[in-house]
Write a protein that binds this DNA or RNA. Structure first.
Lengths: 258, 258
DNA sequence: CGTTTATTTGACCCTTGTCAAGAGTAGTGG
DNA sequence: CCACTACTCTTGACAAGGGTCAAATAAACG
């Protein structure tokens, strides 16, 4: 349920002086505020948030964070998908996750980023410096609590991905990936009647391969095999229709050798 | 520098009534308090901590957390090593990390644990319910801030491990693992003159294999090969001496094909 | 000191990676 | 509107890294 910025809502909101400036409105009408960290800050304090952040729109393939550079900013994804990755000196790359609308990117303990980030498609971001994040953490205990929950959630996802990378076969990996993509599509398109059986795959085969610890050829072959086995369909490469979710789940968890 | 509980220190400390009870002393003399989350709570408030926690000593191979059971407790590792893992229905297992002295185990967002935990060797733990953790989070902003830092650090480690699992060869995986073990030995034995070149490997080949996404045979063969190549030595399987750390680092990051 | 368990080593095979070529797709500009 | 170009994706043939199965050693333990 995207928050509709009715006149009534706006009349209650504003920065600390009680005035509603243009910046605050940007946050008040934000389509993901209800679903991300910003929800920890009440409408009346939203001016603080608006002042702390800058919004930017980036084309596909743009570097958001360069691995190893000074860590200074934090980003909220408003729309689109960002990929996070780590690389080896010889160029081998592992994508550690995709951040979709409502997720954040750029937390770091050390002085430099230990990972890189790049847009997959056109992405709308909210940028915030680490210093400003520290202010919000100190000022709003709920913000700190929510960030902790969010990072804990990311850690849980990372553990699931380690299981996938270390112990699943190519077929199980691709099935797990498609299930994740269905869930993601369902979250971002709750009104689509086909949401149950649709997977949005905006990333290229290269990205999928680097995410699953495979080569593009193996990803391609495995997707073709799933299509041959009537588990998925759709000629479009970036929108896949799932014919049997139970089958896909069985494959993802190693319950089906087929 | 393990905190020596001198009379002076104790005289300043105690619970909120000013009295120093036996429980508080347990925290005040704790060998890892300086290096873990508990450091966010001052000496004078340590009574709160002591009351919230219970200490337990567990033999090797004990289940600390059973995957999928109700999530209710949080543990600090005082000494020894705990392994964290996730499993597939058919028994395949991925160890997602080892928690050594000073680290914690058992954070969870959901009602049930999404992972299991088991002792590797004899382990001393401090147990604390999630409700009590919530109290500490609400009461001590520094505790919340430190926990966030700790979880962020875990996430960074997890990303590094994903790179290892998805993109490194068996040789690179084992080299990376040994480097981690050297670092860990160095942290826990800062006074040992051999700390720079010693790796403590208390876990079995099965655990190493499940951590690196390999089979025990491959782990064994790879360690033998490193020994043949004069990169490591030591006939003892649980204490390995490193002959050339630079070589090991080059291997771990794919800079050396040897 | 015998029994059990952990580790090493060997032989063989399979899944996945590598190399190479062909088939779609998407822009671009004449 | 259609060639031209540049990708991305798919498919095939072959190779190799690591898995599987089996047996031999070496440790651990009662």
């Amino acid at each position: 349920m995207p928050p509709s910025p009715s006149a009534q809502v706006i009349s209650h909101a504003g920065n600390r002086t009680g005035r509603v400036d243009a910046e605050s409105v940007r946050c008040l009408i934000c389509t993901v505020r209800e679903h991300n960290l910003c929800s920890s800050i009440e409408d009346q304090d939203v001016g603080v948030l608006a002042q702390a952040t800058r919004q930017l729109s980036l084309p596909p393939g743009t570097t958001v964070i360069e691995e190893g550079t000074a860590a200074s900013a934090f980003f909220n994804v408003i729309s689109g998908t960002v990929k996070l990755f780590k690389s080896l000196p010889d160029g081998r790359r592992q994508i550690t996750g995709f951040a979709d609308a409502g997720q954040f990117v750029g937390l770091s303990n050390s002085r430099t980023y230990s990972f890189g980030a790049e847009t997959v498609d056109t992405v709308l971001l909210c940028r915030c410096t680490h210093a400003q994040i520290e202010n919000l953490l100190a000022e709003y205990p709920r913000f700190a609590r929510n960030l902790l929950t969010a990072v804990t959630h990311e850690l849980t996802d990372a553990q699931e991905q380690m299981l996938l990378l270390g112990r699943k076969t190519a077929r199980e990996k691709v099935a797990s990936f498609l299930l994740d993509r269905i869930k993601q599509y369902h979250r971002t398109h709750p009104h689509d009647p086909d949401a149950e059986t649709t997977a949005s795959v905006p990333m290229t085969r290269v990205d999928i391969a680097d995410y699953l610890g495979l080569t593009i050829e193996t990803v391609s072959r495995t997707i073709s095999a799933l299509r041959r086995d009537k588990i998925i369909s759709g000629t479009e490469n970036h929108c896949i229709r799932i014919l049997s979710i139970p089958n896909l789940q069985d494959i993802a968890y190693g319950l089906k050798s087929i």
